[in-house]
């Protein structure tokens, strides 16, 4: 049994999500190969060869693979799929974009967002925004999986010494092309992978007042999140939204401030290690999931926190 992991990277550095995905592959068991597809991605291939537990790095280096367009990358993966029992990618927007295309071309029903490996064909994954966990057995010959990165501890970035093998690339699909990328230029960490997330809800009351949430996040070096209610009210842009229809986060510390705790929101943050809730309504459902609750007016508590931290 040999497993193929699709590496997520930016052509210069391998992303941490790849390490969580290798960890999931280790739980399945068997030899693990990793595909590094990109343009001028030799450095990434070297990094991949050092990852603990990898035996072979497949390197595909071609201009049309630079931006990981799903059409080009899926064709490459499918062409090299024959000898693999399992193909895994991170459940990030990178993996979510390309893997279903791979699965369909192989006539396989993918399992999305695996959080636990039971055995080589049985996996647990969250459904209904994490309000239920489904245990499913794949009856397909090959398994195509995306991995919820918060479900697996990253493997070490070193300790391995895999061989690097150049593979023949497939040609460009030709009907899609990359135009531009605008990376979030925030000084703050990325919401999806931040160790600390400070979120505000409708209780914050206005766009102007949302600044105190940002100030607290900056004080703690955390990312800023928001509930859907705060987004719908226009306090912050949509990409701040934590929840079933927004981002799913699992930081070490999640502070929910002025957030009542709608199911929709809980689905996006309930796997956080420590949850703090600050709300003046002591009946707010958020207190039922919080490790530490403070019943207080956020406009008193948050400035005091900022001062005393």
């Amino acid at each position: 049994m040999t497993i193929l992991v699709i590496a997520e990277h930016n052509n210069s550095k391998i992303k941490a999500s790849t390490l969580n995905t290798v960890a999931a592959a280790k739980n399945i068991g068997g030899e693990i190969h990793i595909l590094v597809a990109g343009a001028n991605c030799g450095e990434v291939a070297t990094q991949a060869s050092n990852i603990d537990g990898i035996s072979t790095v497949l390197k595909a280096d071609a201009p049309h693979l630079e931006h990981h367009l799903a059409e080009n990358l899926s064709a490459l993966i499918v062409k090299n799929a024959d000898k693999y029992s399992h193909i895994l990618a991170p459940g990030s927007t990178f993996g979510k974009n390309v893997m279903p295309r791979v699965a369909a071309l192989l006539d396989v029903q993918q399992v999305s967002d695996v959080i636990e490996v039971i055995n080589e064909s049985t996996f647990k994954h969250p459904v209904y925004g994490g309000q239920a966990i489904a245990t499913v057995e794949s009856t397909d010959g090959k398994k195509v999986l995306t991995v919820r990165t918060t479900g697996f501890d990253a493997v070490p970035v070193d300790g391995g010494s895999a061989s690097i093998e150049d593979i023949i690339t497939t040609s460009a699909f030709g009907l899609s092309s990359f135009v531009s990328i605008e990376e979030s230029k925030s000084e703050r960490p990325e919401l999806g992978s931040a160790k600390i997330v400070i979120s505000g809800g409708r209780g914050v009351g206005s766009k102007e007042d949302f600044k105190i949430i940002e100030d607290l996040a900056d004080k703690l070096g955390g990312a800023v999140g928001a509930s859907r209610a705060a987004v719908d009210a226009g306090y912050v842009p949509n990409d701040y939204q934590v929840g079933q229809t927004g981002k799913v986060v699992a930081p070490n510390l999640y502070m929910a401030i002025g957030i009542s705790g709608a199911i929709q929101h809980l689905a996006g943050m309930k796997d956080s290690k420590v949850i703090v809730a600050i709300n003046k309504d002591e009946e707010a459902p958020i207190f039922q999931v919080a490790d530490y609750g403070l019943v207080a007016d956020l406009f008193d508590a948050v400035p005091e926190l900022i001062k005393k931290l």
């Binding site: 396989v108 029903q109 399992v111 049985t122 969250p126 459904v127 994490g130 309000q131 239920a132 966990i133 489904a134 245990t135 499913v136 057995e137 794949s138 009856t139 397909d140 309930k270 949850i275 002591e282 207190f287 039922q288 999931v289 919080a290 490790d291 530490y292 609750g293 403070l294 019943v295």
Partner: peptide, 18 residues
């Protein structure tokens, strides 16, 4: 193609302290 073996409640979070 997938056999759903079971659908369970996620691990419940215990309410902490105020």
């Amino acid at each position: 193609r997938l056999k759903v073996l079971k659908v369970s409640e996620p691990a419940k979070r215990q309410a902490g302290i105020i």
